[in-house]
Amino acid sequence: MVKTDRTGPAADRTAAGPTAAAAFDELDLRLIHALQVDGRAPFSRIAEVLGVSDQTVARRYGRHRGSGALRVLGLSEPRALGAVEWLVRVQCAPDAALPVAQALARRPDTSWVSLMSGGTEISAICRTAGSEDGDALLLQKLPRTPSVVGVTAHCLLHEFYGGPQNVISKSGALAAEQIAALSPPPAQVRATPWVLSDADRRLFDVLARDGRAPLAELATATGWSPTTVRRRLEALRADGVLYYDVDYDLRQCGFGVVVALWLSVAPAELAAAGEALAAHPEVAFAGAITGPHNLFASLLCRDTGELYRYLTTRVAALPGVRTMESAPRIRHIKGAGPFLAAAPTALAARSRR
């Protein structure tokens, strides 16, 4: 699976380099960074921190959201729910890869579905209620077709970078004091997993499409009062069950290459290598996984030349690396949010995987 800076509307992606999409300007990047810090922060608060008017912030967000270049997602944190995530790689015949990928994307328990390399491999993240449920999803519920020639699954053991952070978090678009002014209180770690009610699930269904959905809309979906919705949002966020992510067009940030990176690292060096990798500005997601490759990352580079320099310098210098495999993403099907089959053409900004 390739997690970038966040899920984006479905669209073809190539590794050829940046497209002609108009670039985000400095204020756009600061707005995106602010929303990454707090996706539901009032525009008045964001405007005060950025030193612009409320109307400017609202217009910028409205214009980019309307074009499909930017949106806020409200997402559930799998570990807080006791869920397990699996990185799945599906090898297909070329003519079957897209239909299989789209079938996977339509499932509510998948995210970050992409076509990789020459279009014969699909990568995806699959979520299960627990490790004992993995076989049911991975071996029985994947699309059954003679054109699927191989499936491998790797359990995500530890996340070094991702979740509520992405590449924009490393950009320096906001100063430290601006980030502090927007940051909500840190989430607490619960000893036991949250159990979502049916109303909670309806709440997350709306937030996954629009993390800034008005309280009235959320109240209608859940059957709660707006006051109850507000309190529930605060409680879910305080316990680390709910976080906000930003989906934005990577091309408008100058990124033309999205790459999945698998590394085999000596066990004694895995933690050090993962932490070092997570600090690299090119890394949108990094996590320890099961299997012969025990460290996975999603990379964002401006072009193939920058990717080559990165792989042969900083990746090569990571401690304990034994082998490396990389694959460019050629088509983005689904990100962290729901599958949007007819969405405007735009590239996701968060590779969470």
Rank of each mutant, 00 (worst) to 15 (best):
R350V: 05
A342V: 04
H158T: 13
G223W: 06
A41D: 08
E269F: 00
L98V: 01
L318E: 11
R251D: 15
V257G: 04
D5E: 11
T56M: 13
S351G: 15
W224S: 12
A342F: 14
R353V: 08
A11C: 10
Q36W: 01
G305N: 11
L73H: 14
S298E: 10
C92R: 04
V113K: 08
H154S: 14
T56W: 02
A235K: 04
G223M: 08
F255P: 00
G118H: 07
Y161M: 03
R6L: 11
L347Q: 14
T220Y: 03
Q178A: 05
R63T: 14
P185K: 05
R65I: 02
H293F: 15
P328K: 02
S225C: 03
G256S: 08
T227W: 04
T192D: 09
P164V: 06
N294Y: 11
V149L: 12
R71F: 13
L157P: 03
A58Y: 06
L35I: 04
Q55D: 10
R60F: 10
A284I: 03
G337C: 05
A96T: 05
A288K: 02
T110I: 10
A21K: 12
P344L: 13
I32W: 09
A221T: 01
R314Q: 12
W262Q: 14
P344K: 13
W194N: 00
I168F: 00
V100G: 00
R209W: 10
P185C: 07
L311E: 06
V283Y: 08
T227Y: 06
K141F: 10
P185L: 06
T228G: 10
A268F: 08
A101L: 05
V2G: 05
G254A: 13
T4E: 07
A47F: 06
E121H: 05
L139K: 06
